[in-house]
Amino acid sequence: MPDSPLSASPYEVLGVPADADAAQLRLAYRRALRHAHPDTGGDAATFHAVQAAWELVGTPEARAAFDRGVRTTAPSDAPHDPFAPAAPRPRRDSRPLARSYGHPGGFSREQYLALIREWAGRGVTLDDPYDPALVRSAPRDIRHVLADALAEEETARALSTLGIAYTVWHDLATDAGGPGLPPKLDHLVLGPTGLIAIQSEDWGGPVALKRGELVGDALAGERPIRALAGRAKAVTRPAKVKPTALLVVVPDEHAAVPLEVGGTNRGAAVALARRSRLASAIRDGIPGSPQLGGVDSMEVRARLQATVRFA
């Protein structure tokens, strides 16, 4: 099961309350397995999700570990918060990284911490605001903010591998957030393949491109491409430059294909990408997005450096 604040818990996958006894849990597992099996009209993804849920809570030891927020695969069953800020990963090579500015996920994490403490109540001490049990019990809108932070951090890790020819800005301040939307642009990438505005997202469900906009039940009325275009314009207009592409990045399981391209918005190519496809999509160039020569890229970088602000 993916480590996402919006992922269904194993109890939700099996269709039982978290306090179900062992007999109820086993009965629910057998029933869910039978209904999800491809041979009985189910689908492979649901079948595998049921099996993964059972691995997490199917034995007393595994269930106790899951309820405590412990990964049984961690060394010595050490507590592991999948939602806490991750330590820097060791590098496997010495190739130069992309130049990077800003703090990816920082604004969203600050927002999450404020919301979770407000939701817990005045006077309540939260020893660990990223405790998995606490996160799972929070309202969806709070979990979504944390999911955004995690998505932005994962995107930043992928973008850092682009190489020295690319410059990346994270968490750029903008006044074009709109009602209920964060006042920032998640990422802006500049390189020989263009100037690409990126939104990192995890809506907890699949999305797809249709007529230049994202659609999907999990969006709940949002219009992400329109919002992304507004943020990108607000950030790039002071530098008198324009983005060449608008790209939304989602977890792999939430996009049907690795890279989906769907028309243009204000002259910028519109695309949806799986997270694992992000770096290669930018290196290859988003189809329909104009590329920049070396001189043009240096001029755009200088203009942006003089105007960008961070959230």
Rank of each mutant, 00 (worst) to 15 (best):
Y11G: 10
V13T: 12
V16C: 07
P17D: 05
D19A: 13
D19K: 06
A22Y: 11
L25C: 13
L27D: 15
R30Q: 15
L33K: 08
L33I: 03
H37P: 10
G42K: 01
A44E: 04
W54E: 05
L56C: 07
V57C: 02
G58W: 03
T59D: 04
A62S: 09
G69L: 08
T72G: 08
T73N: 11
A74F: 05
P79A: 00
A84L: 07
A84M: 03
P85Y: 02
R89Y: 06
P90F: 07
R91E: 09
S100T: 15
Y101K: 13
G102P: 12
P104T: 09
G106R: 14
F107K: 10
S108D: 12
R109A: 09
Q111D: 15
E118S: 11
G121H: 08
G121M: 02
G123P: 01
D128M: 02
P129I: 03
A133G: 09
A133C: 05
L134R: 14
V135D: 08
R136L: 12
S137T: 15
P139T: 14
P139K: 11
P139D: 10
P139G: 12
R140Q: 15
R143H: 11
V145S: 09
V145D: 07
V145T: 15
A147S: 14
A149E: 08
E152N: 08
L159W: 01
T161F: 01
T161V: 01
L162E: 00
I164D: 15
H170C: 06
D171H: 03
T174L: 06
A176M: 06
L181A: 15
L181R: 15
P182Y: 03
K184N: 12
L185M: 02
L188N: 02
L190G: 00
L190A: 06
P192K: 14
P192S: 09
P192M: 14
L195E: 04
I196W: 11
I196D: 08
S200P: 04
R211S: 14
L214K: 10
G216F: 00
R223P: 14
A227F: 04
A229F: 05
G230L: 06
G230E: 04
R231H: 08
R231A: 10
L246R: 06
L246H: 11
V249Y: 02
H254S: 03
A255K: 01
A255C: 02
P258V: 00
V261P: 04
A271G: 02
A273W: 02
S280F: 01
I282W: 05
R283S: 01
I286E: 02
L292F: 05
V295W: 12
E299D: 08
V300K: 06
A306F: 00
